[in-house]
Amino acid sequence: MSEPSGLLEGDSVISPAMRAAIGRRQPPVTAVVERGAIHRFCEAIGEDNPLFVDDEAAVHGPHGGIVAPPTFLRSIAPAIPPLPDGDRLPNVLDGGSAWTYGAPVRPGDRVTASVELNSLAERSGRLGPMVIATYATEYRNQHGELVATQEQALIRTGGRP
């Protein structure tokens, strides 16, 4: 999500400590992609496309076996770090994601993901001030190939307690 970074001055709810967190990259995490995890993810989202679920049919497909469906990487996302002074805006909603895709994700792959806070933007909404925090995650496989990037917007509000 490319939100324009219209940071307000004066009574901004974005504190200096929050702002200082921009650009801070978290330590990467590595996960092995288990075949069973792909199957369980497909069950959970109601996925029945043979490319993702049918080991035998997928052998004859373009990847020579099943691959993970596009949003499977949500299951190996690194923990998003707490936002400094985040208790001012304790309610968090997912605002959306923008993905780009590279190499396919196969069972047995080791995927390393690292996340950083890209930007903070302030808006005022129905529930008072809100901050849109955009996080960028990069996913690479064991060959160092870029598997995907994800930009995720988290909307933080004070709202009701």
């Binding site: 959970a44 989202i45 109601g46 996925e47 496309n49 490319l51 993702f52 469906p69 596009p70 949003t71 949500r74 909603l93 997912d94 605002g95 959306g96 994601s97």
Partner: peptide, 15 residues
């Protein structure tokens, strides 16, 4: 979950 809606939209496209 927003991401579940994302998964449904992705399925429509990949199907």
């Amino acid at each position: 979950h927003g991401a579940l809606k994302n998964a449904f939209l992705a399925k429509m496209v990949t199907d």
